[in-house]
Design a protein around this nucleic acid. Structure first.
Lengths: 164, 164
DNA sequence: TGCGGCGTTCATTATGTTTTGAACGTATCA
DNA sequence: TGATACGTTCAAAACATAATGAACGCCGCA
């Protein structure tokens, strides 16, 4: 086996690992995907465990996550009880899911807070802290505009990446 | 002081805190920015430690980071030895820096790996693992294309957000 | 039905990250 | 010059998160 190929795989595994890590999806997910992406042969759980130096439990859970993301295909070999895996060619599908997973609920949470804020502002006595109230309203309006711009961009980005 | 306003501030502080946290910038940075963003009065370090229930050290370091990002202005009160802070109105400047901080070096690292990969592939003996080599080259090419698309989009996003 | 090989689970452990706060340096004022 | 009130630093502690691996259940086969 070529030394160069192994070095290349190692860099990719590390790179993808730290990418998924920083999206809050865990290092192992990225490592497994990258490894499979650069392996022509389908790989069993044990192969992954050995190649990446991770535990079986970790491999099992991450593989399932990747499968749910559709970044992975399970391959059956007849007469063999092991499951084998191969990566889809589509790196985009993998990264997109990793990012969505971590960002979508931030968006939702933000909307929730803005809704709640609206309710509270309507409840508040307009005679109390008049200036402060005006100030806060102005700032929240400004933030809302910002958030809408972000969301617009985000949707465009996602859309753009979804259609390859 | 209106109860509603305090509730609103608390939600925003929490929201921004978890946002910056997930960008790897630490929770406190977001909390401080959000608090200042909704405070008409400039705030001292002590004000921040009390309002947010954080330590002075933590406040000091986060404030400095925010200042470097230009998300914060230091305000001098004459005859007062304390430093006071106020948020810029520009929520975008804050989020943008937080995101850039965490993503820019991923981009760079990716380019570095691709460059190194190129070198290694050229070094490798074309007679060894011929099929495997072909496979890896194809996959890396595909990844490179994906990465270029991402970068293009990213630049557009950033550009779009930079011009308000 | 019992056995062996497999994937899965989850309490425990290990790891990495953030926060704290005591100690420190500095500036101001009497 | 000494006392005081700041902001800053960084080793240590607290905390949050991810990984481990022993125990488990399941399935196919003899």
């Amino acid at each position: 086996m070529s030394q160069e190929l192994n070095t290349i795989r190692a860099s990719f595994v590390e790179l993808a690992g730290s990418a998924t890590q920083s999206f809050g999806a865990g290092r192992v997910i990225g490592q497994i995907f990258a490894h499979l992406y650069l392996c022509r042969e389908v790989q069993s759980l044990d192969d992954l465990t050995e190649a990446l130096g991770i535990s079986k439990g970790s491999a099992s859970m991450s593989v399932r996550q990747l499968e749910q993301w559709g970044a992975l295909k399970k391959v059956w070999k007849k007469g063999d009880r092991k499951d084998y895996y191969e990566a889809t060619e589509d790196w985009g599908k993998f990264m997109r899911k990793a990012m969505l997973d971590s960002i979508a609920q931030h968006m939702e949470r933000t909307e929730e807070v803005l809704r709640q804020t609206d309710v509270l502002l309507k409840q508040s006595d307009p005679q109390v802290c008049k200036e402060e109230l005006k100030f806060v309203k102005k700032r929240i309006k400004r933030f809302t505009q910002f958030k809408e711009r972000v969301q617009w961009v985000w949707d465009k980005v996602m859309l753009g990446m979804l259609m390859k």
